[in-house]
Design a protein around this nucleic acid. Structure first.
Lengths: 236, 236
DNA sequence: CAAAAACGAGAGCAGTGCTCTTGCTTTGGT
DNA sequence: ACCAAAGCAAGAGCACTGCTCTCGTTTTTG
């Protein structure tokens, strides 16, 4: 139904995409704060008022960029595991680090888009329903690795006990996602997920300046530690 | 010399402080993006151009707020350990968690100021030299706990080996700070420091919505895990 | 006491997000 | 095939922003 729906709809989606592309360009050049609708329109050779037919407000444009960015990291994370060949394709730790480094590579390549989604929320407050699903993709990729390790019997459950409230949240989350994992593992998984982006944010936002120079080695080491914390056994 | 240096200088510092106070008020109400110099001047009953005698640009005002915010968290972190009484005052893990929860409490009480310093960098790029020292205070407080535990012989060094480059960075950092700690411990300390703010950012920026409800328990659990990762032995 | 520096206020510039009105083009029902 | 309805682009305009410049006034300083 969407194939031959008239020239107008095709033009609309093309222009919408062109606007987003130009906005992404300005985002990469100057950051979200300096992204200007008028400048986008100017660059596209259209009146600024015409742009409002496609995005009712600046925040809506940003939201669209946010969704795209979440999908871009999410896809990078998902592709990281499917691209593994040889024995690494089955080793949980290798899959785990592949995802984490893919996310880091994406972040280093698109720092302003990273800042858009994992930095401070730009407008008053956002998070329309449409962002929550793409936002979960990286987390789901990580969960997938641990789930597979669990079903393969390669998961070492942590001994340390957790508060009931935390385990309860974790089990509720597992039920919602339809994932069969011990509460303690899921809880640590959420923690590792947050800590992964803590490392990335510190690196990207400059907190590691004059502190850590061997960023890649440091990151991979920390990621191995995170894998261990969720029960994936490290080699050697 | 600064005491009775004329009424003008006193007025100047008073007005400077009033500007920052009003700016902080607007920051808390609307966020950094909507902070407007003109609105601050209006609220203070002065011409907007007069404000430029005190802060040469909007970014300079923001930088001043950033420095203040870093000092505020830093002070909260430092005060957390000195306020401990009884046996907890000597237990490293108790001091560690006290610092972390103090930082979290400050962040929850001042979310927009937290976003200002640990969210995405707002202008093109900032980090004038004046911000780096206050920015280090929380990290130094954490290092202090581990250093004390080390000299008291209560530190369990991690067995896992680290890449040479990482250990090298860590030792250089330790030398610069004048702190005697094994490279592996220092490296893990930096990681824990970054991960702490990863947890806080995810909580404050809404990534835990519909994921974790028992935020406090979750945080304290994660913080205990971080303490363990740097070699502080958990009780029981 | 006079020169110099600091200060406050106003006007003004270029830029922004967003709205409203005015014409034009494509679409879809009869 | 026609014609109303809907979608669209453009321009003018409003209220706001950061920032600069000028012009009197006040305070400090030599």
């Amino acid at each position: 139904m969407t194939a031959i729906r008239g020239a107008r709809e095709r033009a609309r989606s093309e222009i919408t995409e062109a606007i987003k592309a130009e906005a992404r360009k300005q985002l990469a050049a100057e950051g979200a704060a300096k992204l200007s609708l008028r400048a986008v329109a100017r660059e596209l050779g259209m009146a600024s008022s015409a742009l409002y037919r496609y995005f009712p407000s600046r925040d809506d444009l940003l939201t669209a960029l946010i969704v795209d960015a979440y999908n871009a990291v999410g896809e990078a994370a998902e592709r990281a595991t499917t691209g593994l060949r040889g024995p690494d394709a089955a080793r949980p730790v290798a899959r785990w680090t592949a995802i984490c480094t893919a996310v880091r590579d994406w972040a280093l390549a698109h720092p302003h888009e990273y800042a858009l989604i994992y930095g401070s929320p730009v407008p008053g407050y956002r998070a329309p329903r449409t962002t929550t699903e793409p936002a979960a993709r990286v987390g789901l990729a990580l969960i997938g690795v641990v789930r597979d390790a669990h079903t393969a019997g390669a998961l070492k459950e942590p001994a340390q006990p957790l508060p009931d409230a935390v385990v309860g949240d974790a089990l509720a989350l597992g039920a919602e996602l339809g994932v069969e994992l011990p509460g303690a593992v899921l809880a640590r998984l959420v923690g590792a997920w947050a800590q992964l982006f803590g490392l990335l944010s510190f690196e990207l936002f400059g907190q590691f300046n004059r502190v850590i120079e061997a960023r890649t080695e440091f990151f991979e080491q920390a990621v191995l530690e995170l894998a261990r914390s969720v029960g994936l056994s490290t080699p050697r």
